[in-house]
């Protein structure tokens, strides 16, 4: 597993995709951050000018929208990070080699998944610059920041599991990325359907299946064990499905 992990990390760091994705992610997020901060500044001036007591806080104006934007950006970026994990091996024909190596499928999968997770961790880690910058102006609620990062990490891990699954299905990286994006969007949209059936038991089931519904509490500064368990089980399900797809190669011939 370690060797697979090391190989994948090396590929990530030497491929232009990681740097291009990081550049776009940080740049877009930076623009969102700047907008949120200037909006906060404008509101703060108005509040001071008219001596208003609004109950508005930094968390509501900057942090929650920023983390929410970050989750949407991850939705588009994680499929790109995940797309090459198996598709590239398939396209290059190295997947046959992988099957013949004395490494179990599960170890290969774990190595690749952990490498993807590490890349996501690095991406999220780079956004701490924004938190530190914000800290120079107002002290953010570090508890809320921590829970939001935990939530984002878990949701990104779920996206990645879907990405790995999609990558197992095809040799074409573009198809892998678009199909994983499609699956992620489907699980995102499920939450909206719960509103359509509001009040019924179908709404409850759909609400529980919605990927973004479980992020809400994290972004409010709460650690809801149920939501963390959901993301872990969700990731586990798609990793299990990926294993089944890989395993099918042996009996499909």
């Amino acid at each position: 597993m370690r060797s697979v992990y090391a190989k994948e990390m090396l590929i990530y760091f030497t491929s232009p995709i990681f740097y291009a994705v990081s550049f776009i992610f940080l740049c877009v997020l930076g623009i969102f951050f700047y907008n949120d901060m200037t909006y906060m500044s404008m509101l703060a001036s108005r509040i001071a000018q008219y001596q208003l007591s609004t109950g508005l806080s930094l968390d509501k104006i900057v942090l929650r929208p920023l983390f929410s934007d970050m989750s949407i950006l991850l939705l588009f970026i994680v499929p790109i990070i995940a797309m090459r994990l198996y598709s590239e091996e398939k396209a290059n024909g190295t997947i046959e080699l992988l099957f013949t190596y004395p490494i179990r499928d599960v170890d290969v999968l774990a190595g690749k998944y952990l490498a993807g997770i590490s890349i996501i961790g690095i991406l999220l880690g780079m956004t701490w610059v924004l938190m530190l910058l914000e800290g120079t102006v107002v002290t953010p609620d570090w508890g809320l920041v921590l829970s939001s990062y935990l939530g984002l990490f878990l949701v990104a891990a779920s996206f990645l599991a879907i990405g790995v699954f999609a990558s197992c299905l095809t040799r074409n990286q573009i198809i892998a990325a678009t199909s994983s994006l499609g699956i992620i969007l489907a699980f995102w949209a499920i939450g909206w359907f719960s509103d359509v059936f509001s009040g019924s038991s179908i709404a409850k089931v759909l609400g529980e299946l919605g990927l973004m519904e479980h992020l809400d509490d994290f972004l409010k500064g709460m650690l809801n064990v149920k939501d963390a368990v959901f993301y872990l089980l969700f990731s586990l399900f798609f990793l299990f499905m990926s294993l089944r797809v890989l395993e099918s190669h042996t009996w499909r011939g």
Binding site: Y34, S41, A44, G55, L58, D59, V137, D141
Partner: peptide, 16 residues
């Protein structure tokens, strides 16, 4: 009460 909003100084805004 939760943390309050603070206006940015021009130099802070440019840093942001």
């Amino acid at each position: 009460e939760s943390n309050h909003l603070t206006p940015l100084t021009p130099s802070q805004a440019s840093l942001m």
